[in-house]
Design a protein around this nucleic acid. Sequence first.
DNA 1: ATGAATGCAAAGCGTTTGCATCTGG
DNA 2: CCAGATGCAAACGCTTTGCATTCAT
Lengths: 160, 160
Amino acid sequence: MGEMSKQQRDKRVSGALEAFYERLQEEGLKSTKQRDVIVERFFWLDKHISADELLEDVREHQGRIGYATVYRTLKLLVELGFAVPKDFGDGQTRYDPIHNQDPQHDHLICIDCRKIMEFNDEQLNSRIKDIVADLDYTVRRKKIELYAECDDPSCPHKAS
Amino acid sequence: MGEMSKQQRDKRVSGALEAFYERLQEEGLKSTKQRDVIVERFFWLDKHISADELLEDVREHQGRIGYATVYRTLKLLVELGFAVPKDFGDGQTRYDPIHNQDPQHDHLICIDCRKIMEFNDEQLNSRIKDIVADLDYTVRRKKIELYAECDDPSCPHKAS
DNA sequence: ATGAATGCAAAGCGTTTGCATCTGG
DNA sequence: CCAGATGCAAACGCTTTGCATTCAT
């Protein structure tokens, strides 16, 4: 969504980390060098990241880290409610960081260049709430993905 | 999504098959015993089916069929526009048959028993059209999945 | 006949797990 | 100390592929 200054970003990250470590303690789990880097980079990067993308990034900041550790940490983040796994159909799971301040957003994905943009529409959310309520169900989470052609000039298939 | 008599179902299936064989010929592809059964059962069953569910069903109607054939046929159906692959997060891809008459529907999935129900809401669709138009994008397809607790008494976790 | 389709088994790919080793509280 | 975390490699589950064989046109 909007741009964010480094200061704002730092603040967001440290806020998320604080919350994370609090939950860690609650669960009697430990903080380790690897876990710390992974989680910090995850919050810092703040995008729908895949396990191997995160691994690659993390290895630049802290040498030898096994991919199993990244998978396990992502799983932990999901369990503790700091990330949501998403599948955009490119064969690998991506993880969306949750900043509790953010309302859950939806995605618009370019079918050509795979660029993902986020949006959040109040009217849409409200309509969904109604639909589910009418069926006497209780919504836990939603996944809305719109596949479209983007307007980025650098995107392929623009000639067609 | 209402009920459908056997006659109606027969008619729908044969319509879909006719369209399928027409496209097959256009592409210079062949009709075979296996392909025929798979495609017919796929249209007949008419639900978000996974490759191995379809394989199991098909084997009751026609002995020895390799799973590779089912995968290849499903891929073909997708390429020809008769099916859409979906991922509901249970680890395997499901395929939704497309009856060109149907507007594309959305899904409500029970987080406990994994039951999937379909819905189609005009207001929702219209709002989506607006959202995307405002961004100057062109929608190709949408994927909306709502995860909720269902009201089926046979569903686990009803006691909690 | 000849390009396409099948069946099988092997390979692929992302993800998970078993286990011996380390480490934080 | 000792439960929890890591790294490695092996296992996994779903899907795809290579190849020899069979089949539709």
